[in-house]
Nucleic acid binder design. Structure first.
Lengths: 145, 145
DNA sequence: TAGAATAGTTCATGAAGTGAACTATTCACT
DNA sequence: AGTGAATAGTTCACTTCATGAACTATTCTA
C-alpha cells in the first residue's frame, strides 16, 4: 500500500466522522419530540417502506432481530407505529406508521432537510451531483463485498 | 424547498448510511482483539493526538465527559492506554497509548486500509480526489454552523 | 406427517450515552 | 492574600441499543 492511499483514507475517515457527527447534531436539534435519533431513523425507514418487517429492518440496519424488537417496542409505546400480523402467513408482522408518526416524520424531515439544504448552498449543482454519484458508487461497491 | 433537493438529500442519506454500515462491518472483521469498533476509534484518535485530554475527545466525538471517562476506563483496563497527570496543572490528565495499544492500532489500521483500498480501486485518482475534496468541504461547512 | 426453516419475542448481559452532583485544582480580581 | 468562579475529571443512577441463546408459533418440504 502506498503512503498516499493511507493519507487519503485518513482524510476520508476524518471528514466522514465530522459529517456524521454534524448530521446527528442537526437531527437532535430538529426532533421536537421525546424520541432519539436512532428511533427517528427507524421510524423514517418504516415510513419509506410501508408494511416492512422486523427482519427487513434488521438486515437494512445491520443489527440482530432482537434489537429491532426492542426498538419497535419503544416506537409502539410512543404510539408512532403499529404491528399488523399477516393473515395468510401468520409468522409475519408488518410495521405501519400511525398518523401521529407520519406527522412527526414529515415535520422533522422538513426541518432537517432545510438545515442540510442550507449547507448545500455552498455547492453548485454539478458539484453536488458529482459528489452524490461518487457516494452512491462507493456505497454500491461496498455493498457488493 | 424544491422537490429536487429533498430527493438529493434522500439519496445522500441513504448512501451515507450504507457506507457507514459497511465501514463498521469491515472494522469489526479486522479488529482481531476483544475491543469494540467504538473503542478502536477512540484508541486511534488518542494515538493520532498523543497527550490529548478527555475533554478534547468529548468535544471531538460530540459526547459528554462522563462518557469519555467510561470509555477511557475500558481501554485502560485492557492495557491499551495510560493516564498521565500534568505536573504543572494537576487538573489535566493526558492520555497516552501503550506499546500494546500502538501495535493494535497499526496492525488493524493496515488491515482496514487495505480493505477500503480494495474498494477504492474502482475509482480513478481524479475521482477520488474530487470526492474527498467535496467531503472535506462539506465537513468544513457543517463544522462552521 | 415429521422435521427443517422462518419470523418474531424474551431474557440476561454489556457497551455507550446522559446529566447532575461531586472532588480537586487553578484562575481572576478586588 | 483570599474568596469565588472556572475548569478537568470522576462517580452515580438511569436509559438506549446491541448481542446471542433459548424459546414460541407458524409454514415449508420431502
Amino acid at each position: 500500500m502506498q503512503i498516499e492511499l493511507k493519507e487519503l483514507i485518513n482524510r476520508y475517515q476524518d471528514a466522514m466522522n465530522r459529517i456524521y457527527r454534524n448530521v446527528n447534531i442537526i437531527m437532535k436539534e430538529k426532533i421536537h419530540s421525546d424520541i432519539t435519533t436512532d428511533q427517528f431513523s427507524t421510524l423514517q425507514y418504516i415510513q419509506k417502506h410501508e408494511q416492512c418487517t422486523s427482519t427487513e429492518i434488521a438486515n437494512e440496519f445491520g443489527v440482530g432481530k432482537s434489537a429491532v424488537t426492542a426498538q419497535v417496542n419503544r416506537l409502539h409505546e410512543k404510539g408512532l407505529i403499529e404491528r399488523i400480523r399477516d393473515g395468510k402467513d401468520r409468522r409475519n408482522v408488518y410495521l405501519h406508521v400511525t398518523d401521529k408518526g407520519i406527522e412527526l416524520v414529515n415535520y422533522t424531515e422538513n426541518e432537517v432537510y432545510a438545515s442540510i439544504g442550507k449547507n448545500l448552498a455552498h455547492f453548485d449543482d454539478e458539484e453536488i451531483q458529482t459528489f452524490i454519484d461518487s457516494l452512491e458508487k462507493l456505497a454500491h461497491v461496498m455493498d457488493n463485498e
